[in-house]
């Protein structure tokens, strides 16, 4: 623990990452209290103050129906973070299990599992998600499903490679010679040694999941109005560039801050947990 703090504080960028993510999470959780206009998360119309450049009390300006952009960003964060948690909570266990089984059992099992993984990996992620969304109706839940389906293969690949190298370690041989079951060797011996790499990837991915989800809603395939979403806000505002720049710049920056923050934490975590690249 002391070592972790030492490594963290030695690098100012890690501190910055921690601060950014901490701020975003706090703001999202307490959006109801922090946001200047909490009711602007919904279908509110205020034509007296529409399309205003940043000025007090609208720090980030207002959108085309007069809603405070800052408030909407804070509520959009809440949805983005939930989405990140749900997607990773579904994708990681599936990917990890597939990777462990393929990497440890080998043979025909490995061939089948990894070729399926390869098929998913060979389709560009956004195309895969878009074609799924074409079949389903656009909504937050379906958006999460689409992102999950494109995300698990990356964990299968990662854990497969880790398992292949851990399988050669002496402790695996020791457990096998003792007579431990395959399940024990995979989940109790090998998996704990993959956790640092998985955690690091999850942290960095958290930002990217938010980014991809935003891309989907940018294309109109994700969260539907009036629910605030960073991607749809950028998409909507893009039509009015460069005059109403605040419509796109602030939601865009908001995406950047989250992705950047999680990346910095991921790098720090990699060092703390001693993950090799």
């Amino acid at each position: 623990m002391k070592r972790a703090v030492f490594i963290l504080l030695r690098n100012p960028l890690s501190v910055l990452g921690l601060a950014l993510v901490g701020l975003v999470v706090l703001a999202a959780v307490f959006a109801d209290y922090v946001a200047p206009f909490p009711d602007h998360k919904g279908a509110v119309v205020d034509f007296l103050n529409f399309n205003k450049a940043p000025e007090w009390p609208y720090l980030f300006g207002t959108d085309l129906v007069g809603r405070d952009i800052l408030s909407r960003i804070l509520f959009a964060y809440r949805i983005s973070l939930t989405l990140g948690v749900v997607v990773l909570a579904l994708a990681v266990p599936v990917g990890v299990t597939v990777g462990l089984i393929a990497g440890y059992i080998g043979g025909r099992t490995e061939f089948v599992l990894m070729r399926v993984t390869d098929v998913f990996l060979s389709i560009p992620p956004l195309v895969l998600a878009m074609s799924m969304m074409g079949l389903l109706e656009p909504s937050l839940t379906n958006g999460m499903m689409a992102v999950t389906v494109m995300w698990w293969p990356w964990y299968a690949r990662l854990v497969y490679n880790l398992t292949r190298s851990e399988r050669e370690e002496g402790y695996v041989l020791a457990a096998e010679v003792i007579g431990a079951s395959r399940l024990h060797v995979m989940f109790r011996e090998i998996l704990p040694n993959c956790v640092p790499s998985i955690l690091t990837k999850m942290t960095i991915d958290f930002g990217f999941v938010i980014l991809i989800a935003s891309s989907l809603s940018f294309l109109g395939l994700g969260v539907q109005p009036p629910t605030p979403d960073l991607g749809s806000m950028v998409a909507e505002g893009a039509k009015y560039l460069p005059d109403s720049w605040w419509l796109t710049v602030f939601p865009g920056l908001a995406i950047l801050v989250v992705v950047f923050g999680f990346n910095l934490i991921g790098d720090a975590l990699r060092e703390i947990l001693g993950v090799e690249q």
């Binding site: 002496g170 402790y171 041989l173 020791a174 457990a175 010679v177 011996e189 704990p192 040694n193």
Partner: peptide, 23 residues
């Protein structure tokens, strides 16, 4: 049973010594 050459790799770094013996 077996005792291997490299004690660094033959014990699981993420499990306690007791857990390795108890297995």
């Amino acid at each position: 049973q077996l005792v291997q050459q490299n004690p660094l790799s033959s014990l699981n770094p993420r499990r306690s010594v007791g857990a390795s013996i108890r297995l």
